[in-house]
Design a protein around this nucleic acid. Structure first.
Lengths: 111, 111
DNA sequence: TCGCAAGTTGAAAAATTCTTAAATTCGTCA
DNA sequence: TGACGAATTTAAGAATTTTTCAACTTGCGA
């Protein structure tokens, strides 16, 4: 296996390795959203959110479209949903029986 | 959504965000392997590999068992395979039509 | 018991990533 | 045109990760 490939994979996962970015992806799961709205749901500075959005954009996980005064973000591919689901399965396994996080993960999976 | 949850998710993805660690998980996909063997397939110092294995162990993604003189690693859960597959789907989408990485990803998916 | 091979650990240096705040761009409206 | 709101960009420092290297176990055979 050539080097650049798993480097690319690692970069990809690293992109997901940030609370704000994960949060954004989960919010976008339900459909496109303007920055203003994201900002309302994630407690973080506007410039910081913008920074994280830039990372997601660069990676190609999300796309941005300007609509008048606001910018609307969406998932670049619905496959992201599968990925987040697979991650949740593993996380559930890992935490089973010992974490306060367990209930939250299960509640989320059920809805 | 409470804070610790997506922090945990982010941490989880960050764990995958390292070339050596990704490499290890992919090798373990085909079954348990002694460190010595992993070392043969990944060009990295023994101590460095050991560090990365420690990260995977701490996260609970892999488990280690001592067998005489060697230590054998395995995936803690087969769900990891799904996760890697989902990641590959997204990566393929993202690169389609424009990367040298594309052919490699497809070849890998086919085998 | 000695010595060697397989792995791991700890700590410091090197490299990356995050955060923060100021400056900037792009539209919209008066 | 001028001012304002929305969002992004940039730069600098702080905080985390990675890498590296030396020291330290553990098991096995001479």
């Amino acid at each position: 296996m050539p080097v650049p490939l798993y480097q690319a994979k690692a970069d990809f996962f690293r992109t997901l390795g940030h609370p704000v970015r994960i949060r954004v992806l989960e919010l976008l799961r339900d459909g496109p959203r303007p920055v203003r709205e994201l900002l309302g749901e994630i407690e973080v500075e506007a410039s910081n959110l913008s920074q994280q959005l830039a990372v997601l954009r660069r990676t190609g996980l999300v796309t941005a479209v300007r609509e008048g005064g606001t910018v609307v973000y969406s998932l670049a591919t619905p496959d992201v949903v599968d990925l987040l689901a697979a991650a949740r399965r593993i996380l559930t396994d890992m935490i089973t029986g010992q974490g306060e996080l367990l209930a939250e993960l299960q509640a989320e999976a059920a809805k």
